[in-house]
Amino acid sequence: KRPMNAFMVWSRGQRRKMALENPKMHNSEISKRLGADWKLLTDAEKRPFIDEAKRLRAVHMKEYPDYK
């Protein structure tokens, strides 16, 4: 299984929150909104998620060195 990218790290928490706030919203609509919201974030706002994704990638490479 591939490590999560920055968007996936960020959206994991946001998806739960949005689903709780909008229980009747379909998952596909939540995904569209999350994508739009992510694009509106500044680089500074994205930085912690980018850093976490880099950390996850490094751990994955160490655990699965032959993964392609």
Rank of each mutant, 00 (worst) to 15 (best):
K1M: 12
K1T: 10
R2P: 09
R2C: 12
R2Y: 11
R2E: 13
R2G: 10
P3R: 08
P3D: 14
P3H: 11
M4C: 01
N5C: 11
N5L: 04
N5V: 02
A6E: 06
A6W: 01
F7T: 01
F7H: 00
F7V: 03
M8Q: 15
M8W: 07
M8L: 08
M8A: 12
M8D: 15
V9Y: 02
V9M: 11
V9P: 00
V9E: 05
V9S: 01
W10P: 07
W10Y: 01
S11V: 04
R12E: 15
R12N: 13
R12G: 12
R12L: 14
R12H: 14
G13D: 13
G13Q: 13
Q14D: 08
Q14A: 12
Q14W: 00
Q14C: 01
Q14R: 06
R16V: 11
R16P: 12
R16I: 10
R16F: 00
K17I: 13
K17L: 07
K17M: 06
K17V: 06
K17Q: 08
K17T: 11
K17F: 03
K17N: 08
K17R: 10
M18G: 01
M18N: 04
M18Y: 10
A19F: 11
A19K: 13
A19I: 06
A19M: 13
A19E: 15
L20M: 12
L20N: 08
E21S: 06
N22F: 08
N22G: 02
N22P: 03
K24S: 12
K24W: 06
M25D: 04
M25F: 04
H26W: 05
H26E: 13
H26T: 15
H26A: 15
H26N: 11
H26S: 15
N27E: 15
N27F: 09
S28L: 05
S28T: 12
E29N: 00
E29V: 02
E29M: 03
I30C: 02
I30W: 03
I30F: 02
L34V: 07
L34M: 08
G35E: 14
D37H: 09
D37W: 03
D37S: 11
D37P: 03
D37Q: 14
D37C: 07
W38Y: 01
W38A: 04
W38E: 02
K39W: 04
K39L: 12
K39T: 06
K39C: 04
K39E: 10
K39D: 09
L40F: 04
L40A: 13
L40I: 06
L41M: 10
L41S: 00
D43K: 04
D43S: 07
D43C: 06
A44D: 13
A44C: 05
E45S: 01
E45Y: 03
E45Q: 10
E45D: 07
K46P: 01
K46F: 01
K46M: 04
R47K: 14
R47I: 05
R47W: 05
R47E: 11
R47T: 07
R47P: 03
R47L: 10
P48T: 00
F49R: 01
F49L: 01
F49H: 03
F49S: 03
I50L: 08
I50C: 08
I50H: 06
I50Q: 12
D51K: 05
D51H: 03
E52D: 09
E52Y: 01
A53L: 00
K54H: 11
R55N: 10
R55A: 15
R55Q: 10
R55F: 03
R55W: 07
R55C: 06
L56S: 07
L56W: 06
L56D: 08
R57M: 11
R57N: 15
A58Q: 13
A58G: 14
A58T: 13
A58K: 09
V59R: 08
V59M: 12
M61T: 12
M61K: 14
M61G: 13
M61S: 14
M61V: 13
M61D: 15
K62M: 10
K62V: 11
K62T: 12
Y64V: 15
Y64P: 11
P65G: 12
P65W: 11
P65V: 10
D66S: 10
Y67A: 15
Y67L: 12
Y67G: 15
K68L: 10
K68A: 15
K68I: 03
